[in-house]
Amino acid sequence: MSAYWKTNQRRLAPWLFLAPGMIMFAVYVIIPIFQSMWLSFYDWDGLGAKTWIGTANYVELFDDEAFTKSLKNNVLWLVLFMLAVPIGLFMAIFLNQTVRGIRIYKSLFFFPFVISQVVVGLIFSWFYAPNFGLLYQVIEFFTGTGIAVLADEDYVNYGIIAAGLWPQIAYVMILYLTGLNNVAADQIEAARLDGAKGWKMLWYVIIPQLRPATFIAVVVTVIGALRSFDLVSVMTTGGPYGSSRVLSYYMYEQALSEYGYRMGYGAAIAVVLFAIMMIFISGFIWKMWRDETER
């Protein structure tokens, strides 16, 4: 036994070290993905027997207005969340100085990211609250009538997305601050000697060097947009009249909340969300794979 180990340990050791992590990850992450896909072809209340219904869950999705609305909201989230990238970049540029106390400023600007989304949701609910909420009062001051953002079907999504952007911008900002710290100084000096400055400098010299930071910023922003569950749950629970539902929240509602225990239907919604996410994931993985194999 020990002789076998001695001669083969270089071959066995990696699997030995991988085993605990791999088993846990397989049991809790990889296998459940396939179980959900399988479950999406069944009708199941979570307790009784499962009934095979083929693609009926998916067919139902087509005519489900709540589903279409959630899907549309997810697209809105994705598009508007992308604003975090340019805004974060400009905040990083604004803060990339060496004046006294700047380190404290940087940490305080980053602050929203450290707070739980539940707390962020509560903070913004207070900010938007009808009658006494600060935003309500400001709008009332300028236009005469306040807007209860979270109770208005037209504004509710923008209200929640703005709350989500707050920590997301902070995250992107810190990525770009790190990136800006590592921009090659000699290239900037050379470009300055050639007369580049301002926007031209930013576009042709700085942004190309920030590409790794931009990649990570886009990845975390896409994931953040599609994972948007906490804020919807805390701020509106999908309302008013389901107008702020997103797929992640609608799935939870169908499968686990008081609205019913339709596990199969919930699984079908989750599969759709997963498919959307897969488009992005495969893109990210493809790029990372290329970087890894190039070196």
């Binding site: 459940p32 959900s36 939870y252 699984a267 989750a270 599969v271 969300l273 997963f274 996410m277």
Partner: peptide, 9 residues
């Protein structure tokens, strides 16, 4: 990167 909802049930 997967959405949590596909793992939930």
């Amino acid at each position: 990167f997967v959405p949590f909802q596909i793992l939930m049930v």
